[in-house]
């Protein structure tokens, strides 16, 4: 599904990703861990097409297409979803309205008819239940005055609505208390199926108790320095990141 080969990218002339290799297949959950500043969010930004970042080398294909050539909206329409670490506020625009616009643009791209009001409402009700989110929150201006937990839950709601092939969750666990964390993780788990995949970017092992990954990668200083299964996350939790800094890079 996603194939990243020797990806190098940076911002304002400063190289941040220094040769990333990663393969994600349908049905898989990959966790990317690493200390602050190691380049996790940068990787998420590059995959979703943020234009401030320059790719200097390497290739990325998604469903066989060259991802790096696509506009951000087309990447989204092809099925890439990013749950933002810091979701932005859009005053005066409700989540409902926002989602209606998004879904209909995506459907148009795919050559489908726009959803009518009834079908949209039905879909929304169904997804609201899935991620345990309240209608009143969805009628409010997007992220405006939302608590940290509400913002993250809203991201997962949007993910549920858009049914992406590949979801990238950037620190979706940060700032959540244990109940919110469980709700968010629950939502993600319910949305898992054999044809979609998830990349969970996180700082802590905690989230991985709820969203169990198939693979864990450690990103350090712009490189994936170690990959393993969920045991690796536990090891990191115990020993911290220091021991890994001395490990040679693995492909």
């Amino acid at each position: 599904m996603l194939h990243i080969h020797n990806l190098r990218a940076g911002i304002e002339g400063k190289e941040i990703l220094k040769g990333i290799n990663l393969d994600v297949k349908p049905g898989e959950v990959h966790a990317i861990m690493g200390p602050n500043g190691s380049g996790k969010s940068t990787l998420a930004s590059v995959l979703s097409g943020r234009e401030e970042y320059q790719v200097t080398e390497g290739e990325v294909t998604f469903m066989g297409k060259n991802l790096l050539e696509m506009e951000p909206e087309d990447r989204a329409r092809e099925g890439i979803f990013l749950a933002f670490q810091y979701p932005v506020e859009i005053p005066g625009v409700s989540t409902v309205n926002f989602m209606k616009t998004a879904i209909n643009q995506i459907r148009t791209y795919r050559g489908e008819e726009p959803l009518d009001a009834v079908a949209f409402l039905k879909l929304m009700k169904e997804k609201m239940k899935l991620v345990e989110i309240d209608q009143s929150l969805l009628n409010r201006a997007l992220n405006e005055g939302f608590s940290g937990g509400e913002k993250k839950r809203n991201e997962i709601f949007q993910m549920a609505m858009l049914e992406p092939r590949l979801s990238i969750l950037d620190e979706t666990d940060s700032g959540l208390d244990i109940d919110a964390l469980r709700i968010v993780a629950n939502g993600v788990n319910k949305l898992r199926n054999p044809s979609n995949a998830t990349i969970v970017v996180t700082h802590y092992q905690r989230l991985l108790n709820y969203i169990v990954p198939d693979y864990v990668h450690v990103l350090f200083n712009g490189r994936i320095v170690k990959s393993g299964d969920k045991e690796l996350a536990l090891e990191l939790e115990k020993k911290g990141y220091d021991w890994i800094k001395n490990e040679p890079a693995t492909a």
């Binding site: 951000p72 909206e73 990013l82 932005v88 616009t101 643009q105 949007q158 858009l162």
Partner: peptide, 16 residues
Amino acid sequence: EDQIFYCRQRGIDEEA
């Protein structure tokens, strides 16, 4: 730019 990008990441083009 963050607002625009947020929208685009959801599949909404710049104009919209």
